[in-house]
């Protein structure tokens, strides 16, 4: 690379850091949560087209949701930035139950495990998911 190109690279890096800082300063993004079961159903269908849940558990903080369809498939919805991503859970998934809290990992290294406050239904979800193991 020439000196000119290196100078352009330096300027570009400064520019992108400035824009990202500006985006934070302006409060862009917002705090997005799953408000109810209906929203969770809609998000699930967006994540996996045609996924029709028969059971829905929404984390009390609205950060995630767990859904099950008629075929017994479990779908984890979790917040990513101010959007949501969904993953169908398979044998790679792992979970840990602590009273009302169910911690679920998808098995993907870059998708950190997430803890859902599902109230008393956490134990029911946990037992239903043992079949995945």
């Amino acid at each position: 690379m020439t000196a000119n190109e290196l100078a352009q690279l330096g300027a570009s890096i400064i520019a992108i850091l400035f824009i990202a800082w500006l985006a934070m300063l302006m409060g862009l993004g917002g705090d997005v949560r799953i408000g109810d079961e209906e929203q969770a159903r809609r998000l699930a269908n967006e994540a996996v087209d045609g996924f029709i849940p028969v059971e829905v558990g929404v984390d009390r903080a609205g950060m995630a949701a767990l859904l099950k369809d008629v075929a017994g498939r479990h779908l984890l919805l979790r917040r990513h930035g101010n959007k949501f991503v969904g993953r169908l859970l398979d044998s790679r998934a792992h979970m840990r139950l602590d009273r009302n809290f169910l911690t679920i990992g998808t098995g993907e290294r870059l998708l950190a495990p997430i803890t859902l406050d599902l109230g008393q239904s956490a134990q029911i979800w946990a037992s239903g998911m043992r079949v995945l193991a």
Binding site: I16, A20, G29, G30
Partner: peptide, 16 residues
């Protein structure tokens, strides 16, 4: 405001 997400923007620009 939800049209932008600072970390997403930073990733996009770093891609650039």
């Amino acid at each position: 405001p939800e049209k932008y997400e600072p970390r997403d923007t930073l990733t996009s620009l770093a891609f650039g």
